[in-house]
Design a protein around this nucleic acid. Structure first.
Lengths: 238, 238
DNA sequence: CGCGTATTTGAGCATCATCAAGCGCCGTGG
DNA sequence: CCACGGCGCTTGATGATGCTCAAATACGCG
């Protein structure tokens, strides 16, 4: 009983869903919750119903992947620290979830979380609003996939990563100068998110580098000219 | 007071969100609700905050469109009878909503609906689950836009329309034999939904016709071979 | 240092976009 | 009833973007 709640110094305590909960509720949620770590490239949720996880991302980046039988893949979402993995009220066998980087999760039992969702007004409301934001994010990406050129797609992805990785909940990612990021994705993963092939991604990065917009060194990218990058990504909020 | 609730013979009373409400709540909601009709091709919601509608689709089909400044468009969702138009808890200036066919809406005031959402457990839950379904639908479409060929896209769209237009809530659409549909979309709209050009859509339809999979007569399409159409669309639930 | 993997680079190609007619459907008006 | 015109759709020819296949290079890691 003298053990303090592990939530108090959680890296995402101010941004994850659970930030709306009272200390008492947190203690309750923590019974049966567990921190788990995964290495990069590991499948952590998918078709196996026994593996029907339900967790908050504490650090690292997770890919949600849809695949076709012939081996084509599309990453349909990236989960960053403070995002929720898992779908309440329905088992979620529609995507594969795989770590892109090393990941730390805070895992709960489904029943405990669903009960909290029912009982806690604020939690429910926050979850709903985040889900509505997910709808919007998906639709933004539909515009990108349906209508944008390879150049625009790559630029848009770099801006997305720049924004999300420098957000406060990613403090742990220890980002260098704010215009420099370490990509959490391989070229192949970038391609799967952008609906392109790996060679095309590589060439578009090359083009941006040649134009002096970015500098690349492996997975480290420095944005030299944010405005130019935004121009390359085209106005997104049309 | 002797006027019976207009909801009793509403075409979507069994499938729209409001089906969870008690008769008393329905009466309440109906104060300030109004039926409105719109011709095809009319913008009914978009950037204008005063036009921030909030409505159930009673009949017809609505397109949600995202656009880029240079005139590229992407339809990011279709709304069919019983679907909800509008985003609660946040004004929704992110898409343009335009009628694809003649449309009948049941419009509410935002405050009334948001209050019901707060007070009615069942309504809230249903709305949440539908929103989660919207997320999934968007992600399915991302796979289509990012990874599927023109042929697969067109076939997938035909199957989608076949399924949705023969659902019970579309009874009003008076679909003919169940393998025949009247497309609610022009070729141009199909292209904007599929991330293709109008000529490509036309050619793919032509290919399906040549293969004996469908018959086309203007906007009337008869599916001769559903299995072949499904094969052309490739397994979707990968 | 050397291997395996990721990434880059190159050459040729396929799919889909673009540009440009042509056709058919329909409503209008003669 | 038929000529006319407009619009949406189809069809054809050409071209560009991004894909495929292949090889070279860079990089991480033992």
């Amino acid at each position: 009983m003298s053990r303090r709640s592990p939530c108090l110094d959680c890296a995402v305590r101010n941004s994850a869903l659970c930030h709306t909960l009272s200390p008492q509720r947190l203690v309750e949620l923590n019974r049966g919750a567990s921190r788990r770590r995964f290495p990069p490239g590991q499948m952590i949720a998918g078709r196996d119903p026994a593996e029907d996880r339900f967790a908050i991302v504490v650090s690292g980046v997770i890919k949600l992947i849809k695949s076709l039988p012939d081996g084509r893949h599309q990453i349909v979402a990236l989960l960053f620290p403070s995002d929720l993995l898992g779908r309440p009220f329905k088992s979620d066998g529609r995507y594969m979830a795989e770590t892109a980087t090393a990941v730390e999760l805070c895992c709960f039992g489904r029943p405990a979380f669903e009960r909290l969702m029912r009982e806690e007004e604020d939690l429910r409301q926050l979850f709903l609003e985040r889900t509505l934001d997910d709808v919007d994010a998906g639709r933004d990406w539909m515009l990108l996939l349906g209508r944008k050129s390879a150049q625009e797609r790559v630029a848009a992805l770099l801006l997305l990563l720049l924004r999300r990785l420098s957000a406060p909940e990613c403090a742990m990612c220890a980002q260098q100068p704010s215009h420099q990021i370490t990509l959490p994705l391989s070229r192949s993963e970038m391609a799967d998110y952008l609906g392109l092939r790996i060679e095309t991604v590589s060439r578009q990065l090359q083009r941006l580098r040649a134009a002096g917009v970015i500098e690349t060194r492996g997975r480290t990218i420095t944005v030299r000219n944010v405005a130019a990058l935004e121009r390359a990504a085209e106005s997104d909020r049309g």
